[in-house]
Design a binder for these strands. Structure first.
Lengths: 263, 263
DNA sequence: CGGAATCTTGAAAATGGTCAAGATCAGTGG
DNA sequence: CCACTGATCTTGACCATTTTCAAGATTCCG
């Protein structure tokens, strides 16, 4: 419970200092896991040409929606998003959860129209990179073009891992893999790997994992009975990571991480 | 039965005329659905710089394997491939089937190492585009760079559709959607939409669809009982497309098509 | 022609979904 | 600060779907 507060406090301190301003990639604390990762100092300077703008998204607000014209790539600076697709017959499924350092907006570059929707699950900030500027900067910033391909390729690999999870794993494995993946991603951002607050409902987890919310809830109870975790609604504490990893069948490939630019 | 022969004959005529030669994109009959689609005549000429080479792959042979270093993109000219990933704990799942006009090799551009394996299910020919040449050609061929991003973005959309299928559809829907998708793709290539030979086993279909081979087999029998198709092992005849589409719940989005460059 | 691979089908078992009821939590307005 | 309302979560009982196991038929390929 204490650590729950500290986590919130930490988020709180980062919530300040926002505006619709142009940002400098050279001074961003997330640059190592964002689009400009791996660029030289000179190249970082040239990123001014690409001039990412900042945008704040309220909880529940859409960053973009399926059908919107597609003219930007977004880098999450702060907050938490879900992305989802809706089929013709009205079914929908969550395709990913994105947090600081993750890249959004890669879908629909071919049709010029987004194929998925992205909604903030809490107040969030993103950097906006216009496709047009990215393309004209190509000549000077070969490395940047290359990086964009890398993010996309990484996203493809992540989705392959997701397809395996959906195609072959049972409920227990899916939920275990999901919790471990979230945990690792929080860890990479400097938060606690061992305890964290879920930003999504059981239903949203289920939608992502191809399960009903009741099944997700049962798995949480099951893991608690086994002494693998404690869970009080959204607050999760991982007690036995190795056993959880064994349950996940090592589905917790690096690939399953969200699209990200790091190295 | 007759049409089965004609289909083979058709394939037969295309099997001639192969070599390790450099090819001209400007004269390729597949250019409208390949990497250079949408390029001007001038730009098509410049494709000589990129100098795709041709490679023949025997039935059962790997085009590349997970772990191989990643230095080329491949365009299928002729034949049929399966791509699959293998998890750490040894499970594997097919991630796609590729035929003429489809693009391969997009995985692993970030790590420099392929994350999936690709194997030919029949004698196949591919064009090989070296990444290095594609990158240096960037300056002159902006449009080509853009096209590469389009293929990747299209692949991401396809995988989203696949995730929905795996996450929410029942066996009947999955198999129906699969048959319709194959049918449409054959149709686009000028083959019959109504009857065709499957290139893969029941088990391979199952692996792709997250089902066991027995379930796939049962669905085939089921569809025959309903008068939707006739199936004699690999040979399939679609009798009632509308009803099949209704079963598929219109999961047969354009997205579910394989990665492809057309328009 | 013969052996291996592939496919079909049945019956039993396991897994997850559906439906329903009640508990808990978060946010609102008094 | 508290009660209230709607959203979210838990749990149980039952049901539908898919898997598993097994046996036999068919096809492919050398």
């Amino acid at each position: 419970m204490l650590s729950r507060k500290t986590e919130f406090a930490r988020l709180g301190t980062k919530l300040r200092d926002v505006g619709g301003l142009t940002l400098s990639c050279a001074h961003c604390h997330l640059r190592s896991r964002c689009l400009p990762s791996g660029l030289s100092l000179d190249e970082l300077g040239e990123m001014r040409e690409v001039a990412p703008r900042q945008r704040r998204v309220a909880r529940g607000e859409a960053l973009y929606q399926a059908g919107d014209s597609c003219h930007s790539i977004y880098a999450v600076r702060l907050g938490f998003f879900k992305s989802y697709v809706v089929t013709q017959d009205g079914r929908s499924q969550i395709t990913g959860f994105q947090m600081a350092g993750d890249i959004l907006g890669l879908d629909g570059a071919d049709t010029g129209t987004h194929t998925q929707s992205v909604v903030a699950l809490e107040v969030s900030d993103v950097c906006v990179f216009s496709y047009a500027k990215l393309e004209t900067a190509a000549g000077n910033l070969q490395a940047l073009q290359h990086k964009v391909r890398c993010v996309m390729s990484r996203e493809i690999a992540r989705e392959h891992a997701m397809m395996v999870l959906l195609g072959t794993a049972r409920a227990e494995e899916r939920v275990a893999a999901f919790l471990l993946n979230l945990s690792e991603r929080y860890g990479e951002l400097g938060y606690s790997e061992g305890e964290f607050n879920l930003r999504m409902t059981r239903e949203e987890m289920g939608s992502y994992l191809g399960l009903k919310l009741e099944t997700v809830s049962r798995m949480f109870s099951h893991f608690q009975e086994c002494g693998l975790i404690t869970a009080q609604h959204r607050y999760v504490h991982i007690l036995d990571r190795p056993k959880l990893a064994r349950l996940a069948g090592r589905n917790v490939l690096p690939d399953i991480h969200e699209t990200r630019m790091s190295q």
